[in-house]
Amino acid sequence: MAWGKKIGIGIDGMEICLSALLFVGAVCGIHQMQAAEGIGLYWMEKTGGTLWQMNALVDCAAAGALFLLAFLPARLFKHSSWGAVSRFLTGFLALMPSLSMSHLLHLFDEGTDGFDPELLLFALGTVLPLVAFLFLGVECFERAFRGWYGAAGILALLSGVLMYWESQVFGFLLVYLFLLVGADLWERLLKPGRKTGLLGGILFGGLWVRAVYCILMLWSVY
């Protein structure tokens, strides 16, 4: 923190810079994925455009979707800072299961991909306990429950059930819902005057390292 303050960007600024690096890395990974899976080629045949144009379009759409998925929670919970966006983006890239783009493309014409228990076990064994510990932390300072948490919980359960039919998409949805709750709790823990800077730093650092690992794995696959 002291180093960040010394050069005048603060802890939020450092987190924004580090997560921007992740964003660039993730977009490169997405480009490799879509190129390998022939998504641009598919649209080229469908629309008659050039491959270069279609690749660029798919990359931009994927980058925009990634940004929106990371940006929306901050807007939704009224945490109006880029630091909040960068923290959620880091958690998102670290913990979300990767979703194949060709799977998304053929979602409605190829039927279902069957149940993958690993996704459910990851959500139950890693993501939900971490969210529960954040709840525990927030409860130490204030009452944590909000009405929409119940709705998120019901949706999470529903998507857990739906995983039997459409594993990848609903596994993604399940973890995303847990992360939404976790992101709100994380921001509430970091409120000024709570001496939770160390907690925020550790959580951000741990998830950042994990996100780097996930991006490297994505690169190595595609």
Binding site: G125, F133, G137, T196, L198, L199, G206, V209, Y213, L216
Partner: peptide
């Protein structure tokens, strides 16, 4: 280096991150 990163970010992720977060929470709580 990659095998050490894999160990930290994959094999030890839930236990090490949970321990770190809970320890830091304890410190924050005084």
């Amino acid at each position: 280096m990659f095998s050490m990163l894999t160990a930290a970010a994959d094999f030890l992720l839930p236990s090490a991150l949970a321990a770190a977060v809970l320890l830091a929470l304890g410190v924050s709580m005084g």
